[in-house]
Write a protein that binds this DNA or RNA. Structure first.
Lengths: 159, 159
DNA sequence: ATATAATGTTAACCGAAACTAACAAAAGGA
DNA sequence: TCCTTTTGTTAGTTTCGGTTAACATTATAT
């Protein structure tokens, strides 16, 4: 298990890859408001965990394992973000900031319960929703979950 | 502003005072699952912040400032605990653990929004509830908030 | 092609928050 | 009282996640 801090780096890399097609130290540092040496350390740490491939001055490429984990992390983030923004009515920016911090604090079990709840609350027609964070599709309403990475995150269930 | 870690110590001290009438290093360490030297450091740190009075081998007494802050921290914790337990249906123990971690992560603003939401959800009669964490009484339903410290925390609104 | 700018790396260090081991003080029982 | 146990303290370390300063490498523009 990697640390919550490393998870943040991994998530950011995944998003940058989707947004820019490439992952650069400077861009990570900017996005995460940290120094480049911090990013560098994180890279080698993630590499040790086989979550990405990297050689000095080379390009950062997430491994399959890394990408899978990143998706899971991003989805958890999205669920919390959605709850904060659409249920608690926080401002988008604050919802983003807080979602990161909350995600870094709680267990998968709690995220899963929150996911179910958000799913229910945002669509009251499926009060008996069977949504599970580990499944691709809700058995009750047949929606699929789709993560919208491109602009500012947020995630949706699509028919 | 003290750190989230110190807030945990302060909260624990307040609860111990209510439960046992006194605050001891050993009891804090037991409750927080940490070593006595860690507690000792925290004590002097809180003392520097004028949140408690202490002399070596003496008794720990929260100042007024310390007690006020402890109450605020405990209330935030209670709100999150209530949400996790009664809204997300987490087990009591897990709700307690997660509540601490979440509280240590989020801002007052978010707690406040959550408080309003929990207040609404747990009593659907007051959907236009005006509850505010900084007020003693809800203008809509006229309930007062009361923190039940004694056993395992949890907090209620009382008529 | 080379000077300059941008990017990435390394080394040394910091601070917070924890730990263990060893010791000092206080409390309680015979 | 005095011995033992409990409680509290100190010193020295560790780990984690970050930093700055200085340097190396790569990319860009003229």
């Amino acid at each position: 298990m990697i640390s919550k801090s490393l998870e943040e780096y991994l998530k950011t890399m995944y998003v940058l890859k989707k947004q820019n097609g490439k992952i650069r130290v400077t861009d990570i540092a900017k996005k995460m408001n940290c120094s480049k040496p911090s990013v560098n350390k994180a890279i080698y740490n993630l590499k040790d965990n086989e979550l990405l491939n990297y050689e000095s001055y080379g390009t950062i490429e997430l491994t399959t394992k890394g990408e899978d984990l990143a998706k899971k992390i991003l989805e958890a983030y999205d669920i919390i973000y959605l709850f904060l923004k659409d249920v608690l009515n926080l401002e988008e920016k604050q919802a983003q900031e807080e979602a990161e911090k909350i995600k870094s604090a709680i267990t998968d079990e709690t995220i899963n319960q929150l996911a179910k709840y958000v799913h229910k609350v945002l669509d009251l027609k499926s009060l008996d929703c069977d949504y599970d964070i580990n499944k691709e599709r809700c058995r009750s309403c047949e929606r699929r979950k789709v993560s919208k990475v491109a602009k500012g995150s947020g995630f949706i269930w699509q028919h």
